[in-house]
Design a protein around this nucleic acid. Sequence first.
RNA 1: GGUCGUUUAGCUCAGCGGUAGAGCGUUCGGUUCACAUCCGAAAGGCCGGUGGUUCGAGUCCACCAACGACCACCA
Length: 696
Amino acid sequence: MDKVYDHKHVESKWYSFWEKKGFFSPKKTKKYFSIILPPPNANGKLHIGHAMYVIEDIMVRYHRARGDSTLWLPGADHAGILTQVVYERVLEKKGKTRHELGREEFFKQTYKFTQENKKHMYTQLRAMGFSLDWSREKFTLNPDISRAVYQTFKLLYDDGLIYRGDRMINWCPRCGTVLSDLEVNHKEKEANLWYIKYPIKNSKKFVIVATTRPETMLGDTAVAVNPGDAKYKDLVGEAAILPLLNRELPIIADSFVDPEFGTGAVKVTPAHDPNDYEIGERHSLPKIGVIGMDDKMTTLAGKYSSLDKYAARKQILADLENQDLVDRVERHKYSIGVCERCDTVVEPQISKQWFVAVNKTGRSGKNLAKNALEAVRTGNITIIPKRFEKIYYHWMENLHDWCISRQLWWGHQIPVWYKGSEVHVSVEPPKGSGWKQDTDTLDTWFSSGQWTFTALGWGQKNFRDFEKFYPTTVMETGYDILFFWVARMIMLGLYVTDKVPFETVYLHGLVRDERGQKMSKSKNNVLDPLDVAKKYGADAVRMALVFGTGSGNDTNLGESKIRGMRNFTNKLWNIGRFIIDMAPEKRAKTKGSEEDKKILKELAGIKSVVTHGIENYNFGIVSELLYNFIWHEFADNYIEYSKTRREETQETLEKVFEESLRLLHPFMPFITEELWQRLPQAIRKANSIMVSDWPE
RNA sequence: GGUCGUUUAGCUCAGCGGUAGAGCGUUCGGUUCACAUCCGAAAGGCCGGUGGUUCGAGUCCACCAACGACCACCA
């Protein structure tokens, strides 16, 4: 054995050994343990956050050693809007647009793009040592998955829980699609608040309204005041004249209006503001769309039509100034919605879209949000750390209907066909001619929300895995997608299968750089998991990611920590060298000295602590204790002690080392396998540490 | 506006009721004898602040402060 451990000669060798032996597939035993890998987006390579999958690998390797029928199922996500945006950027560099390619060709190219990324990502997952069952690999856009997703759509539709309607939605003018509320980020901004004078009909007086968006005034259909506002009491029922267009606007009373804000009078634009939309509904106001889906003013905007909305704003303000209708301007902080994927300012629009009625009880008696809340409240699903349960409740209790249609080309096309006024919802296209399929695609989270059961074969030809491994045992993912994904999986899982999709949700934190800053290319602080794995070994990277971390908290990771863990691999290696390479020729019976008793007692203690720790998701502590035991108890104390009496300590050395390797294997699979294989055959009870029993 | 989290050694973080911990860094001393990716020793903390509960509190409770995150339809 070399003096220094070289992971390069070890890691890839063992991974292909395990894979060839079929160790990643579940054995047939009574107890099941399953985790569905949160599918990484197939539009790039893996980042350090994905390396957190190591937590899943630890659980999976542990349960395999416990003898459970253990499945860890890999897959990749087509990631609808994000992938479309990414591939559009690829096209942009070639000076092309998706419209030049056309829908079919764009889809074809994007598909190819994702398959290439996928292949590369899978290589990366293997390099990290993740013991995934590749024979069951799935892609969210596979035809069989698509069929299953269509079945769910139909179930919900037939149950009255999916509907199509004109609603106020978030529109991204850049992406050209509707976004769900979750896909809109709110940014705090300081902007002008313009106070505009609206003349009162048959009077020389004005009512002054405040707005941050003067261009929307062209779509005003009322002025609203608070019903209890004495200052405007006499105006209610009167009319104001909309400047520039001279439209008559009723002055109405609505309790939404805050008498303390601005002037206490609000312009109402039902077509371009969610609150105004609500007011409009309550008072049956007309809705005049003056901003088009392309962010240019429509023909309803009169002389401003075809101007970009910001250009229109400028012009409108100038025109108002000329008529002396701008009372004053204040600086004002407000929050503005932007597209999560491209940062473009989102425009509220009224548009016909497909929605999931999350708060409604269907004919089946099921209610998505209610049932999903109950599952956690009753403890059928446990969320770790516990504080996220409260966050989950709060979100679920305030859910709005979920818009699931997207005007994208990349995704599952909506399984609805139209012919004239007929609407046909089904998995297969309807028979007969003249039917045209809906051109929209489904929100990517609508399909990934079903991943726990579609990936296991639900609704497909081979659903044996579903019968065995569903509900899955643990869902391990980042807390940042609790709403996007976890909540949707709970809703759809319960709805479709009548069972929880998983028993436990374990949420890990985000990986940040050494100083706690978010990793980003512009800051040049990005750690590529494969780069560091190449440099220090995947074992070291894995250990560094869990060592001394608390669940649900963000973890700061720098190269120095990984280096420290690499040093630990070297320590292990040299312990191995000492025990294996430099074994004494003869052995004597163990006398059972105080030192022997001490190390064996400590070993027994560490076994119990590690077992409990893994069962209770305390990976940070467990890894730290193992590290300290092996280095500071075993190496620094017992091995030092053994040096002067090798013959009578060799047996204990081997025993403690062998068991330590098995305990450490879920964390550092490669080096533990390598060293374990070098131990005397007599003390190894399997042909791989990966399939040997957990130390009892 | 609401909710949640964080605040412990120079840096990054564990610990969450019983005499202050780790990794990295720092200082001093070690070249045969597994490992300098090492060994031995040491310095360094009124565990954010103020009250309270307790025989006993980084550890539980209340309030405060700073930082961070998330949610939210105030023009």
